[in-house]
């Protein structure tokens, strides 16, 4: 699997090893010396057979991600700055679709929502219980940015929990996203700084 190959490649990046103040220095040092990383990410394991979720507009992730190579974070822009990744605002869709593929039925539907100033009622596919404090931003920072993981390949990181979205039309839940799924990954990535404290996630 592509994702896995990428991540066990020791040259992919490096890792937070200690407390915040120290890390930056260590990182600089290591990068300048082009040394191999001590630890690497172990992706979570587990599968889930998600139900098909009918969405108000059948959004084709495959066309956007695979065919047009649009980065996940172009639309799910909040992922790197918030707990939630966010559904892109309609204005973002219209940024392209004012001119692109305006004759397609799904785009016509979208345009109607936009003109009516209404938001489509998207159905949630990926969710964690409300008593869980999960943040996208910290995961992205640890798994990608701090390791200088190439941002253009970010979908490989997203795929840890969201699966192979580039081959889906509307998203489908393929990972269990339950406590076992989370905690096993945290234990496996302890050296990366994955916390084991209950109150880190339970709120």
């Amino acid at each position: 699997m592509v994702v896995k190959n990428r991540l066990i490649n020791p040259g992919a990046g490096f890792v937070r090893t200690g407390l915040a103040g120290m890390v930056f220095l260590v990182m600089l040092l290591m990068s300048s010396m082009a040394m191999a990383v001590k630890y690497d990410v172990v992706p979570p394991s587990g599968t889930h057979t998600g139900e098909d979720v009918p969405q108000p507009i059948e959004f084709p992730h495959d066309i956007h991600v695979k065919d047009n190579d649009i980065n996940c974070m172009y639309c799910h822009t909040y992922a790197r700055r918030s707990k939630v990744a966010g559904i892109p605002p309609t204005s973002k869709c219209m940024g392209c679709h004012k001119v692109i593929a305006t004759d397609k039925p799904r785009i016509k539907e979208l345009t109607k929502y936009w003109e009516d100033k209404e938001s489509p009622l998207w159905k949630k596919v990926h969710d964690v219980p409300d008593f869980v404090h999960f943040t996208h931003e910290k995961h992205l920072k640890t798994l990608a940015f701090d390791r200088e993981f190439p941002v253009e390949d970010i979908k490989e990181i997203c795929a840890f929990c969201h699966g192979d979205v580039e081959n889906m039309t509307v998203a489908n839940k393929v990972k269990p996203l339950n406590m076992g799924f989370c905690i096993n990954c945290h234990i496996a990535n302890k050296d990366l700084g994955a916390p084991g404290d209950c109150w880190k996630c339970h709120k």
Partner: peptide, 26 residues
């Protein structure tokens, strides 16, 4: 009701046009 995580049971309303400083979850 603790875990209402079935896919597609809850709805998400996206912003029509967000202000720069409005970030969901913040």
């Amino acid at each position: 009701t603790t875990v209402t995580l079935e896919e597609g049971k809850e709805e998400v309303v996206s912003y029509l046009m967000p202000e720069e400083y409005v970030i969901p979850g913040v």
